[in-house]
């Protein structure tokens, strides 16, 4: 299969480890990109962090498992977990089916405001992916 044309959502910010971030007031929603879910293949198990957990930019904060592999998800920001997508426990396939919508992973309350500016725009992420190809 290889990676098919990968969908990039306008209005989100992107990290080099293929997470997206959407700012909604003082919390941000975090998920993995369409490119990442294609790389992961069928997600069959999601190990979510606890609400209240402190996470640091660039550190693994949760796990996505496919049939074959165990993958870390690296935090695009430093902050505190405000909410987790508990539905993924029963419907892990949503990470594949709707990575920017029902397949979101966690909501984070960022503590380092400057970090948002270090993330890529949709346009920059598109170029970043093109550079990988």
């Amino acid at each position: 299969m290889g990676i098919k044309e990968s969908n990039i959502r306008e209005g989100c910010l992107y990290a080099e480890e293929h997470e997206w971030v959407k700012v909604e007031g003082d919390v941000v929603t975090v998920g993995v990109t369409d490119y990442a879910q294609q790389m992961l293949t069928d997600v069959v198990y999601v190990e979510l962090p606890d609400v209240g957990k402190e996470i640091s930019k660039g550190q693994s904060f949760m796990i996505l498992e496919s049939v074959k592999s165990v993958s870390d998800v690296y935090s695009p920001l430093t902050g505190t977990i405000a909410e987790v997508n508990e539905e993924l426990a029963d419907f892990p396939e949503r990470v594949n089916d709707a990575p920017y919508d029902e397949g979101w992973l966690v909501k984070v309350r960022p503590s380092q405001s400057g970090e948002l500016e270090e993330l890529m725009s949709a346009e920059e992420y598109r170029e970043f992916l093109a550079g990988k190809g």
Binding site: M1, G2, T41, D42, V44, S66, V67, K68
Partner: peptide, 21 residues
């Protein structure tokens, strides 16, 4: 062209085509 390839026992072989499941 169709498969995601992997190395196994010194061979390049399909790990999966579209979905293991």
């Amino acid at each position: 062209e169709r498969a995601t390839l992997t190395e196994y026992a010194g061979f390049q072989l399909p790990l999966l085509y579209d979905s293991i499941r």
